[in-house]
């Protein structure tokens, strides 16, 4: 059965890129437009991995991770934090909030696939 990944980003082009890459490798991709949307989708369905952006309206990436991790549904789901910002404080915050790891945007498709494979399995 194919693994299902939740792609959280307010930018449709980034979501499309993630979708294009992962669907091509046999994953199923669900999209969420911001942290709030992600929270709703991730509590309703158990994903094999979640990729989230930081800067989003309504609820940002770290806010989403924090809230999600406090919920029973939020335990043990790997969340990869995507950011164009490389500063350490943000990384530390994401990690502390419960992200499994992070990637710098923009990333190429091979990088993305490698990361998803690493956290969700093939």
């Amino acid at each position: 059965m194919s693994k299902t990944i939740l792609a959280v980003d307010d930018s449709p082009s980034v979501r499309q890129m993630v979708r294009l890459t992962l669907v091509g490798a046999g994953y199923t991709v669900v999209e969420a437009v911001d942290g709030q949307d992600a929270l709703e989708k991730a509590t309703a369905h158990r994903f094999d991995a979640i990729l989230t952006d930081q800067n989003m309206p309504r609820l940002d990436g770290i806010g989403f991770i924090r809230q999600f991790r406090t919920l029973p549904e939020g335990k043990g789901v790997p969340i990869v934090f995507l950011s164009t910002e490389s500063q350490d404080t943000l990384k530390a915050q994401a990690k502390e909030a419960g992200a499994i790891g992070w990637m710098i945007k923009p990333f190429d498709q091979a990088q993305l696939l490698a990361v998803v494979k690493k956290v969700a399995g093939a």
């Binding site: 930081q54 800067n55 806010g63 500063q87 350490d88 404080t89 943000l90 530390a92 502390e96 992070w102």
Partner: peptide
């Protein structure tokens, strides 16, 4: 991950600072 950053490293001057995550929460 850069583990020491969690507690000891102050934000380096001139770069984006810590105001980020709270602003839109």
């Amino acid at each position: 991950w850069d583990p020491p950053a969690e507690d000891s490293t102050p934000p380096s001057s001139g770069t984006l600072s810590a105001a980020v995550p709270t602003a839109s929460r």
